[in-house]
Amino acid sequence: MGASDGAKYAYIVARVRAMKGKLIPRDMYPKFLNMEIPEITRFIGESEYKNDVDELGKKYRGTDLFEHALNQNLALTYRKLIDVSQNEANFLITEYLRSFDIWNIKTVLRGKFSGASEEEILEDVISAGQLRYRDLTEIVKIGTIEGVIAAFAKTPYYPALEGYKGVLADVENSLDKLYYSNLIKAASASGNKLFLKFLRTEIDLKNLKILFRMKRAGMERDEIIKMLIPGGMELKENDLGRLSAMSFSEFVRALEEFSYWKAISDISAELGSLIHIETRLDKYGLVYASSISYYYPLSILPVLDYILSKKIEVDNLRIIVRGKETNLPEDIIKAHLVM
């Protein structure tokens, strides 16, 4: 039966809207800052994270429990989105969530590169993509980076990995590029313009972060261009080239012509601080996702908005707990939170 465009998304959108309603309210974060780690763990254990905290409570304690509960919950939540969606929504969600495959591959490679233990690596693995946790636990056991890369030979990510020549950053960068170019291809194939728009904005934000980081590190134009991801919405390829060549202050001034400027203009005095810039850009992405998802209520956008909001919730919680663990002052933790 030919369901109309709206009806197709009604189920999944109503569902993610209900899920979004159950995210931790923003006014809890200042309270978390005053709480100890067990209290925060207990609090999230009384919310949507209940199953994860109760179940992992027999295996882990303290921050380990917290981190594993966050990861497991994030992975299960996203997996649920894949399980309960159908047709186009399912296809787009699956493709979008491949970012976690990229993340996991990077995590394993980085872990192997720095000689981290299996347990340490697995602590950061979030199996929300197509690579299964069980497979990853096997791959983590492999000793060498080359061995790990060979283990990914049958995945679609191998083209980005096979060129590994001892520089991890290169592989990571080509993984990102591969992910986005595949995603743009998939979005174009499905003909979903809204998804594409969302994606291109995400690429812009990612490029801006890279630019700020590279500029701060004083990298050269060619090196920067190599890192940037093509396909952005406002920052076209020639813009990227132009911005990469500028000095830091010129670069900041040049940003005024883009709509992203309003996200960072009020902190232009302290643009040197990466934390502020990155949280601002993340916040911009969050607000953008939520506002366009209201313009197109029966589309893929509310789902993407939820995926983003959930990710940021987990990131915020992780920042708070890691900050507390290392006794960071509260205002520094706060500066890292995307709210």
Binding site: P30, K31, N34, M35, E36, I37, P38, E39, T41, R42, G45, V53, D54, E55, G57, K58, L65
Partner: peptide, 25 residues
């Protein structure tokens, strides 16, 4: 400022976490 929990809050939460893990098992 927003107040801080009383001193025993952290210990109580730890107890609750262990208790709920047991209860779950």
């Amino acid at each position: 400022k927003i107040g801080r929990p009383l001193k025993n809050a952290s210990r109580l939460s730890e107890h609750l976490l262990s208790l709920r893990a047991i209860s779950n098992q």
